[in-house]
Design a binder for these strands. Structure first.
Length: 478
RNA sequence: GGCGACGUACCCAAGUGGUAAGGGAGAGGUCUGCAAAACCUUUAUUCAGCGGUUCGAAUCCGCUCGUCGCCUCCA
């Protein structure tokens, strides 16, 4: 089975092979730390997390770089509005960003370079671009990239430069550029920048936005690397500009596979400040949903489709997770001895093939999740028939854990039911057991209701009474 | 104006030529003192509409309707 990705460059699914065998180098556009990131941002980061996890599942070593944009118009503007330094301001949101990554159980990338720490690298590229004639200094002392010099400009976005409706969103006179499509590599200092500037050979000023990604990706990954990702809105102009800068600088192909994630929408509508529906992770929690349910929502639709965040879709996600967790608890309760069965061995192998087949096909995670649920139902049926031995259960559990290394739903951390309960809860359970023995159902049901109020749910089965917490707890046993 | 995407059940969502996955919700049933969990059955003769190609179309082509994205610093 071959791993295939939809490459924005060709608009086709292409078989994936890394430049150097066994290692994948990928650059993932990270946050601009001027605010708390919203659940739409995390949709893209979750896609990138899924990508890196699946590459590792396939046996690749992954070197992932995610930039932290800690200087741009917004960070400067908003830090000044608060009257604090740029570093203090961006530090706050950078920290919050990493906390959110942890809450969503995203793996850490290998590098998180900050733009402010790579200005010399950017300056070097800009100097080279000027020398080669791809860049010019405007009357305003800003340095611009001349897109007319780069013959393939528009190749990623599949746009013809002449067709661009100039000035659709930016005032013509905002910058003194030769062409409206030219973009700033270096912005000359002005009073609004306050203390934020670098004294360089290019003059006093600060870097433009696009150049940081070229400089930092190539520094950590080389002039040509395997994968570059981001949200669809970055295709043009950001990623197009990165190509123009990088390839003009190095003379070799910049990125081999461009992958872009579609946006998340809320209640069927685009997130926007005016609609007041740009939720942060904190707000998701305040609505009573867990970050893991959000993660489930993310992977339950394909990354190139829009995903719709609604009350209903989040409730469905929570319930789906409960079903998976209940299944794992059920597996761990199996004590039947005996040899492992050939049927379970065959089933797990077949399902693992289906899982990989789905993920190989451009990360079809909804299909992969469907395979997971099929397995759950099939094995549940076997458990009902008392066919499953402890060894079979262990095999199934191992398979699900290996999938979950990709999906990241923390199924291996589901609290086992032999966890210690507070004494008074245990006493109540014992009391109920007595009541049931006396067939005093009123008493037994009253105790069950009482425990439910305390967040403990009871399930009576043939092997005795099982309990679980209403709110799942995760244990750190990884 | 240019380029492009999408429209599958009550909701979410796979499926790109071989006869409609999966999750949630609803209904009925098995099990259970009851409940919960689990399992079984059930809910699209049909994939926005209309034509065409084909032995065969949700899948390919054309048109129509509808929703949406990008077109210069938004994930």
């Amino acid at each position: 089975m071959a791993l295939r990705f939809f490459n924005t460059l060709s608009r086709e699914k292409e078989e994936f092979t890394p430049l150097s065998q066994g290692t994948v180098r990928m650059y993932t556009c990270g946050p601009t730390v001027y605010n708390y990131a919203h659940i739409g941002n995390y949709r893209t980061y979750a896609f990138e997390d899924l990508l890196r996890r699946y590459l590792k599942f396939k046996g690749f070593r992954v070197v992932q770089v995610m930039n932290i944009t800690d200087i741009d118009d917004k960070t400067i503007r908003d830090s000044q509005a608060e009257g604090i330094s740029l570093a203090e301001f961006t530090g706050r949101y950078t920290e919050a960003f990493f906390q959110d990554l942890d809450s969503l159980f995203m793996e850490r990338a290998e590098h998180y370079p900050r733009a402010t720490e790579h200005v010399p690298e950017m300056v070097a590229i800009i100097e080279d671009l000027m020398q080669k004639g791809y860049a010019y200094k405007g009357e305003d002392q800003c340095i611009y990239y001349d897109i007319s010099k780069f013959k393939d400009y528009g190749n990623l976005a599949h746009m013809v430069v002449e067709d661009l409706k100039i000035g659709a969103r930016v005032a013509h006179d905002e910058y003194e550029k030769e062409h409206a499509g030219d973009f700033a590599l270096w912005k000359a200092w002005d009073e609004q920048d306050g203390p934020v500037f670098w004294e360089t050979s290019l003059g006093k000023g600060r870097p433009g936005w696009h150049i940081e990604c070229s400089a930092m990706s190539m520094k950590y990954l080389g002039g040509s690397f395997d994968i570059h990702t981001g949200g669809v809105d970055n295709i043009f102009p950001h990623h197009q500009n990165e190509i123009a800068q990088s390839e003009a600088h190095t003379g070799c192909p910049f990125v081999r596979y461009w992958l872009h994630a579609e946006h998340l929408i809320v209640d069927g509508r685009k997130m926007s400040k005016s609609l007041g529906n740009t939720y942060t992770l904190r707000e998701v929690r305040e609505q009573g949903f867990s970050p893991l349910a959000l993660r489930y929502l993310y992977i339950s639709s394909h990354y190139r489709s829009r995903v719709n965040y609604t009350q209903e879709s989040m409730e469905a996600s929570e319930k789906a997770l409960v079903r998976l967790r209940d299944f794992l608890v059920r597996l761990s309760d199996i004590s039947k001895g005996g040899p492992p069965s050939k049927e379970i061995e065959g089933l797990t192998k077949a399902r693992n093939d289906s899982f990989a087949e789905a993920m190989d096909d451009d990360l079809n995670s909804p299909q992969a999740v469907a395979v997971l649920f099929e397995l759950v139902r099939e094995v549940n049926t076997d458990i009902d028939k008392e066919l499953l031995t402890r060894e079979d259960a262990s095999r199934v559990r191992d398979l699900i854990f290996s999938w979950d290394n990709v999906l990241g739903l923390q199924l291996s951390r589901v609290a086992p039911s032999d966890e210690m309960l507070p004494h008074e809860i245990e006493a109540l359970m014992e009391k109920r057991k007595e009541a049931r023995r006396r067939r005093d159902w009123n008493e037994a049901d009253a105790i069950r209701d009482e425990l439910k109020k305390r967040g403990v749910l009871l399930e009576d089965g043939p092997a005795g009474t099982r309990w679980k917490k209403a709110e799942p707890t995760l244990v750190d046993n990884k």
